[in-house]
Amino acid sequence: MSLLAADARAFVAAARKELRMWRRYPLFILGLLFWPIVLPATWVLMGQAYSGGGDARALAAFAERAGTTEFAGFVFVGYAMYMWLSNLLWGPGTALRQEQIRGSLEAVFLTPTSRLVALFAPPISHLPFSLLNFVTMGLTLWLVFGIVLPLGPVLEAMVVIAIGIPSMYAIGSLFAASVLRFGETGPIVQLVRGTFVLACGITFPLVMLPGWAQAGAALLPPTYIVADIRTVLFRGVGLGGIAIDLVLLLAFAGLITLLAVWVFRILETSARRRGTLGSY
C-alpha cells in the first residue's frame, strides 16, 4: 500500500513537472489562443465560399451529409478535437521521447518509482490546455460568429467529452510509448495527427469518405467523440440516443490502455537489453 502511495506521489510530481515546463514557453500560451480561433475561422470562411454565401441548395446538400446546416458549429467542434489531438501528441506524446533524448528518462528509471508512471503521468498535463481550447473556441463561436449554444446540449456535450477523456488519454500514452522507437518525433506527430484528421470527420462529414475508410474510422475513439458532440449540440438528440457510443468509448479506453502498457513493456525491455534507454 505504501508503495502504491509513493507511486501516486511520483505520478503527481511527474505531471506537475510537465506543467511547469510549459510555463517556460510563453509563446506556447499565445499559441493556445491563436490557433483555436484562427484555424476554425478559416474553415468557416471556406464554408462560406463553398456554399456560395449561404445558397439554400448548397446548405441543404451539406445538411443531408452532415446532419446540420450549421457548418460553422460543425467546423468548430471538429477543430476542438483537432486541438485536443494536437495537445495530446505534441505535448505529452513526445515528452517521453524528449526525456529519452535529454537522458532524464534514464534518471527516472533509476528511481524505484514504477516505470508506468513515466508513461501515464505526462498526458495528464494536456487536460488544462485542452479545456482552455474548448472555452476559447466556444467563446469565438459565440462572439465572432454569433452562434449561441443552448445550455442543456452544452452540458450534454461536456458529458461526452468527460467520457471521451480516458480513451483520448490512452491514445496519448500509446503514442508516447511508440515514439520511443522513432528518431524524429515531429514528422511522426504529423503522420498520426494527419490520419486522425482524415479519418475522424474533423472538418468534413464522415460520409464523404469511401466505405473502407469509414470502416477504419469506426475503430478510432475520436470519431465517436466528434460525432456525438455534434449530435447533441446540433441535432437535438439527448445522451440516451448515443448511449451505445458512450459505452464503446469506455471499452476503447480500457483496450488502448492495455495496448499502451504492453507496447511500453516490450520497448522498455528491448531498450534495456540493447542499452538504448538513454540514447537515441
Partner: peptide, 24 residues
Amino acid sequence: VIPAFLFGAAFAVGGRSLGLASSI
C-alpha cells in the same frame, strides 16, 4: 487539400459545386 476537397464536396448539389460557382 483533402479535407478542403471533401468539405467543399459536401456542399455539392448533384455533383456540381453550385455554391463555389456563385462565389468565384
